[in-house]
Each structure stands twice: as structure tokens, then as C-alpha cells.
């Protein structure tokens, strides 16, 4: 990854990414596997990483970004220490997941999916997580919270903040 600051920091992740790009360079349909491996390396796909992939595979950054934002398995934000996955699938939605989402955004100070400034929480809306019986439902680092009402949210978040 190039950097304009002039310093000669060697970034092991960048070297790894270069190897991945080299490996796939001349294969068709290389973009998605490279994005997968890049996400493994970095945990997410920020601008600089997408730019490197675009240049390496001779695809425009716009195309890369279009693919990254189309598939839910890719993320352009680093995950927070606590990753909140809220289901916005049909079953949850009709039971008020929309209001839960609004409340989460409000409590976290986010305007859409993303990560809080302090890096503590990330919010990720997703499709069915297989717990429709508990709708509306969310998971925080794998722990399931079901039959939510908006007023549950502050207490749940506080639990994690207190643990810090």
C-alpha cells in the first residue's frame, strides 16, 4: 500500500495483500475472492485497501465499492469491540425491528450501520438470523436478545459499557 507521508513504514498486512493480488491477478472473477482474503487480513475493507485491490486487478474503485456494498459479508467499517447484529428481516420488521434500529442508532450516535467513534460498538443490520420465534431479535457478539422493545436498548448497552 502506498503512502504519501514519505516514511518507510513496512506494513506486513499490505505485503500479505500484495501476495493475494499476485496470486489471483490473471484469473477471471478474481475480485470477490481477493476481497474475501483482504477482509480476513484487515477485518474490514477501508478505502486504501479497496484502492490497492482496484489498482492491482485493473478494475475501477467504483466497481470494487459497488461489489463490497452489495454483499452483506463485506464491511467497510472496522468492527467495534461489541458487534451488534440486528435482524431487519420480514418477521422482525413486522414486529417493530425498525423502531429498535432507530433507537440503537440514537443511543449509539450513528445515522446508519457503522462503528461508534470510541470503537466500542458496531451496528450491522442483517437479514434473518434464524431466531424468528424471538422477533424482533438482535445479537451482540453472539449473545441473543429477543422480543425487544425500544426501551430495552439503553439497559442492554449499559451492561457492556459497565463491563469496560
Amino acid at each position: 500500500m502506498s503512502c504519501s507521508c514519505g516514511s518507510t513504514c513496512v506494513d506486513p498486512k499490505a505485503q500479505e495483500l500484495q501476495k493475494v493480488i499476485e496470486k489471483y491477478k490473471n484469473t477471471k472473477g478474481a475480485v470477490i475472492p481477493v476481497l474475501h482474503e483482504a477482509q480476513e487480513i484487515y477485518g474490514y475493507l477501508p478505502l486504501q485497501v479497496q484502492k490497492t485491490i482496484a489498482e492491482g486487478l485493473d478494475v475501477s474503485l467504483a466497481e470494487i465499492y459497488g461489489i463490497v456494498t452489495f454483499y452483506t459479508q463485506f464491511s467497510i467499517y472496522p468492527k467495534g469491540k461489541y458487534n451488534i447484529q440486528l435482524c431487519l428481516g420480514t418477521a422482525c420488521y413486522v414486529k417493530g425491528a425498525g423502531q429498535i434500529y432507530d433507537r440503537l442508532k440514537q443511543e449509539l450516535g450513528l445515522d446508519k450501520d457503522g462503528t461508534t467513534k470510541d470503537g466500542l460498538f458496531s451496528l450491522e443490520s442483517c437479514r434473518c438470523i434464524g431466531a424468528c420465534g424471538l422477533a424482533p431479535v438482535m445479537m451482540i457478539n453472539g449473545e441473543v436478545y429477543g422480543r425487544l422493545v425500544p426501551d430495552d436498548i439503553p439497559g442492554i448497552l449499559q451492561k457492556y459499557r459497565d463491563a469496560e
Binding site: 478505502l47 466497481e63 465499492y65 456494498t69 452489495f70
Partner: peptide, 19 residues
Amino acid sequence: VSVIETNERGFNTIVSSPF
């Protein structure tokens, strides 16, 4: 030139520049 694309999905689909 390719500086605009179809981004996001479903109801949030938008034609825009990267990021």
C-alpha cells in the same frame, strides 16, 4: 472513467461514487 456505480442493495440501492 468509471467513477459512478450502483451501490448498496435493495431499498438502499443508490447510484453514487465510491464511499
